[in-house]
Nucleic acid binder design. Structure first.
Length: 588
RNA sequence: GCACUUGUAGCUCAAUUGGAUAGAGCACCUGACUACGGAUCAGGAGGUUAGGGGUUCGACUCCCUUCAAGUGCACCA
């Protein structure tokens, strides 16, 4: 709508003799209850016009409809100037933009962005919280790619530390050599089972110690199991062959399990980083910071940074014994990633519980003057809560990712069978469809919510398949395909003499917004923008579909025109859904 | 206690980033042509945008304040 903005600037110049900036021009889509498709808000302009908002609207409206052939009429309601664009404008919008094969395809912008997401621990299987993280990360990567960025998806695997040793130790003590093969358990679930078992046995020991007079804190420190786990960690760090071998074995099980889950979720990565390789990094950055005077050393020789000027605290960066803390290795890893890829932006998809950590991390990197520091972003998302509150693995209230996905497929199966519309599907096709629909429902459910907001998931009320849902949009696509599959000749006519019906025009307007929507969602790193758009689009298409006959249209020209509209809608729906990582079926 | 985030219909979410009479879905009620797929469409009911104050032509949006919920404040990761 740039031409309207330009013309408005000219209008203000010609009418009132003042040059204005584009920023004071506020264009928006006209509300349904009024005539017109584009609305100019006149309030910001009245200080130049020195007229009432109505008067200003009328004067600019008259100017615009006189100078712009695309505008056929206008009306002013309060301070809002509603512009009606001609049919031929909207038709050419459809024929020359929307139906063009390059529609909504952005040229590469030459910028590289890294999206780090997933980043699991290798001591237990993934749960619903991870699912949100993975879907968000993947979708944001798709959206940025569509917006013209070169995207590198990375996964920083937390594969070492005391928690890993806990499952290792429990397996060694109580496992009797159990393996995924021998037990039939998925690798990550098997390892997770021993993590839980460790906790159970550990608690028992704590109780025993308390019974003989130790305090809670003492008991936690002195319990045999935790001492053994700590000893195991030390052995791991010392490179003890036996411990390393066990670690490798169990991690391999976990990776095999994760690979399955990732595949089911439909996410992927370009580069894996492992903390077992990066946990010692960062010490040279400590030296650098000390040299530059950004960090300081206390008498006990621990190293700190003072961030009180930034409204943060003093932060420990290196212990008095010279060993690193968490943020030390994050500093090192940030440097490593930059050295590897030289990206312009680096996005960390991590829950909002780490807001403070990332504020500190980014501030430090900035203070050090690190390259790429200005492109760092914490994509902070809200926790997934159950009606009972937070998920707690130790209390068994986690929603397991694999279980959840299976349930979704089962529900999809039940719905589909009840409707009985898939005659002729092979068993394989059926399974694929159930997966597509079940995951569509789940992904849409999680992605339609603004990332920064917390999300409530009620396992007892299954995710809907009707209304504002993934399957609703998938269904719209399937119906579009069904119509298109019934015609054997589709002409690419670009001449259309009939008057546009409201439903047709509304659809063109919605379709034409798509590139802007991609832009907006990329700028805000928000798949929810796409999700809400594609739902609106599907609704508008369904309205059109219901009101207008396509195959039985009044004449062949109208039929062909509506087929093209249908075709364009199907393509945009499919593309937008793909940005959410959701597939759309041909039939369902 | 301090810091950050959030609070919109009974429930789950929107609101073009300060614009019109705050919109959808679910649930509830009513209706839909012998037509291209009814996982659809149309209509009804449902709101003091947590409360109060302020800025503005205009506030769900910005500022102050009270309340409520969540998260973070380790020589843990």
């Amino acid at each position: 709508m740039d031409f309207i903005i330009e013309a408005t600037i000219k209008a203000v110049k010609d009418l009132y003799g003042i040059s204005i900036d584009t920023t004071v021009i506020n264009l928006q889509e006209t509300r349904k209850e009024f005539e017109g498709q584009v609305t100019l808000v006149t309030f910001p302009l009245i200080k130049y016009s020195k007229q009432s908002p109505e008067q200003t609207g009328n004067e600019i409206g008259a100017f615009l409809s006189n100078t712009l052939p695309q505008i056929e009429g206008f009306n002013v309601v309060k301070g809002f100037l509603n512009l009606s664009l001609t049919d031929s404008f909207w038709k050419s919008k459809l024929f020359s933009e929307i139906l063009d094969e390059n529609f909504a395809i952005f040229k590469p912008n030459g910028k590289k962005v890294m999206v780090e997401y997933s980043s699991p621990n290798t001591n237990k299987p993934l749960h619903l919280g991870h699912v949100r993280n993975n879907l968000l990360g993947f979708s944001v990567a798709e959206i940025l790619t569509a917006a013209g960025f070169e995207v590198v998806k990375t996964n920083l695997v937390n594969d070492r530390g005391i928690h890993i040793c806990k499952s290792m130790l429990a397996w060694k003590k109580f496992g009797n050599g159990e393996t995924p093969t021998s037990s039939g358990l998925k690798g990550d679930h098997l390892v997770g089972k021993y993590y839980v078992l460790f906790d159970k046995e550990y608690k028992k020991q704590i109780e025993e110690l308390k019974a003989i007079g130790q305090t809670e804190d003492e008991a936690k420190k002195n319990a045999q199991l935790i001492l053994e786990a700590q000893a195991m960690l030390q052995k791991w760090e010392a490179g003890d062959e036996e411990v390393i071998a066990l670690w490798k074995t169990m991690n391999t099980w976990v990776y095999e399990g994760f690979a399955e889950t990732y595949k089911a979720m439909g996410v992927s990565f370009d580069k894996f980083y492992y903390e077992s390789n990066t946990y010692l990094l960062g010490k040279d950055i400590i030296e650098e910071g000390l040299r530059k005077g950004v960090f300081f050393r206390k008498e006990d020789s621990s190293v700190w940074i003072d961030l009180t000027d930034e409204g943060l605290d003093q932060k420990l960066l290196l212990r008095s014994d010279g060993t690193s803390v968490y943020i030390t290795q994050d500093l090192g890893t940030a440097q490593l990633k930059y050295n590897d890829f030289h990206m312009d932006k680096s996005i960390y998809v991590v829950g909002n519980e780490q807001d403070y950590h990332f504020k500190v991390l980014f501030t430090i990197l900035e203070k050090l003057g690190k390259q790429g520091a200005d492109g760092l972003l914490h994509l902070s998302y809200g926790m997934v809560d159950l009606p009972s509150g937070k998920m707690k693995s130790r209390e068994g209230t986690v929603v397991d990712a694999d279980d959840l996905m299976n349930e979704m497929e089962q529900t999809a199966k039940t719905h589909t069978e009840n409707l009985g519309k898939i005659n002729g599907f092979s068993e394989e096709e059926k399974l694929e469809l159930y997966h597509t629909i079940g995951m569509g429902a789940l992904k849409y459910f999680l992605l339609k919510v603004d990332p920064k907001k917390r999300l409530l998931f009620n396992p007892n009320e299954s995710v809907d398949f009707q209304g504002h849902t993934g399957p609703f949009i998938q269904y719209t696509h399937a119906r579009i395909r069904s119509v298109l599959n019934r015609v054997d000749t589709m002409l690419a006519d670009t001449i259309y003499n009939e008057k546009l019906d409201i439903e047709e025009r509304d659809l063109i307007v919605a379709l034409s917004n798509y590139p802007t929507i991609i832009q907006t969602s990329a700028e805000g790193y928000s798949p929810a923008v796409i999700a809400n758009y594609v739902y609106d689009l599907a609704k508008i298409y369904n309205k059109f579909y219901h009101e207008k006959s396509i195959l039985q249209a009044e004449n062949e020209q109208i039929k062909q025109f509506r087929l093209q509209l249908t075709n364009a809608s199907g393509k945009v729906i499919k593309h937008a859904m793909s940005l959410l990582g959701i597939e759309v079926p041909e039939r369902m």
